[in-house]
Simulated assay, not measured.
Amino acid sequence: MRISKLRYFFPLGLLISLLLDGIFSNIFAASFFQANASIESRLIVVWLIMALCFGQIDHPYFWSIVAGAIFDTYYTGIVGPMMMLLPLIVYLTLLMFRFFTPSFIVVLLICLIDITVITFLFYGIFSLISYTDVSLTTVIGKTLGPTLAYNLAAFVILYLPLKKFFEYFSQNRSA
Rank of each mutant, 00 (worst) to 15 (best):
M1Y: 14
R2V: 11
R2C: 13
S4G: 10
S4W: 03
K5N: 12
R7W: 08
Y8H: 12
Y8F: 15
F10L: 09
G13F: 04
L14D: 02
L15A: 11
I16F: 11
I16T: 10
L19P: 02
L20R: 12
G22K: 07
I23Y: 13
F28P: 05
Q34M: 11
N36E: 14
S38K: 07
L43T: 03
V46F: 01
L48A: 11
I49H: 01
M50I: 12
A51W: 08
A51D: 04
C53Q: 07
P60H: 01
Y61F: 15
Y61H: 05
F62I: 04
I65L: 13
I65N: 02
A67S: 13
A67V: 10
A67R: 02
G68W: 03
G68Y: 02
A69R: 00
A69H: 00
I70P: 02
F71G: 02
F71Y: 15
D72K: 06
Y75A: 03
V79G: 01
V79I: 15
G80T: 09
P81V: 01
L85R: 02
L92G: 07
L94A: 14
L95T: 15
L95Y: 14
F99S: 11
S103F: 01
I113V: 14
V117Q: 06
F120L: 12
I125K: 01
F126M: 14
L128G: 13
D133P: 00
S135P: 08
L144N: 01
T147N: 06
Y150Q: 07
N151D: 10
L152W: 13
A153N: 03
A153H: 05
A154Q: 13
V156P: 00
Y159M: 07
L162C: 09
L162I: 09
K164C: 01
F166E: 04
E167G: 03
F169T: 04
F169E: 11
S174I: 11
S174A: 15
